[in-house]
């Protein structure tokens, strides 16, 4: 079981961290959340359960992130899941502007829609896995995701 969990961690490290960051809004809390989730998973006999282990691991990280936020609430503006430093001066102005607009639109999403986007787009989960991670029915998650894309589209149109 440990091997399976390690494989999931290695494959989904970026997605797991992005999800934790989207929930907590702080990189240090996100890192702690991923570590604590795996500490729990290594020691949990439930990790040997049947079903989709990927969705279960994402659910564990999400729960750990919520716990972190509850233990250490933070008043300052949340950190973005996007890397602003990756848009350097060599990037074309219109591309940098597009980056800014998309970032703004994603950050303006309600948390549950943003999580759906993170799980589908950045973690590459199926709707079924995303539903398991969020503890919601599949149809609800799919509908949130569609609404999120529509909201982003409308935001981009409005901003630009």
């Amino acid at each position: 079981m440990r091997r399976a969990l390690e494989a999931i961690y290695r494959k989904h490290k970026q997605g797991l961290f992005t999800l934790a960051l989207a929930v907590t809004g702080r990189a240090d809390l996100a890192e702690d959340a991923v570590q604590e989730a795996f500490l729990h998973l290594w020691n949990s006999s439930r990790s040997a359960r049947a079903g989709d282990l990927v969705g279960y691991v994402f659910a564990a990280v999400r729960n750990a992130a919520i716990d972190q936020l509850r233990k250490r609430p933070f008043a300052a503006a949340p950190a973005s899941i996007f890397d602003g430093s990756a848009v350097g001066p060599e990037v074309a102005v219109d591309q940098a502007e597009q980056f800014r607009l998309v970032r703004q639109a994603v950050e303006a999403l309600p948390p549950e829609q943003r999580e759906a986007v993170v799980l589908r787009v950045y973690a590459g989960l199926t709707f079924r896995q995303a539903a398991e991670a969020l503890g919601e029915p599949l149809a609800t998650v799919a509908s949130r995701y569609r609404r999120a894309l529509e909201t982003i589209r409308a935001q981009l149109r409005e901003i630009s």
Binding site: Q14, F82, D83, A86, V87
Partner: peptide, 10 residues
């Protein structure tokens, strides 16, 4: 568009 966005690395 979303997929093109650079993510903050762990």
């Amino acid at each position: 568009l979303l997929r093109k966005m650079p993510l903050r690395r762990p």
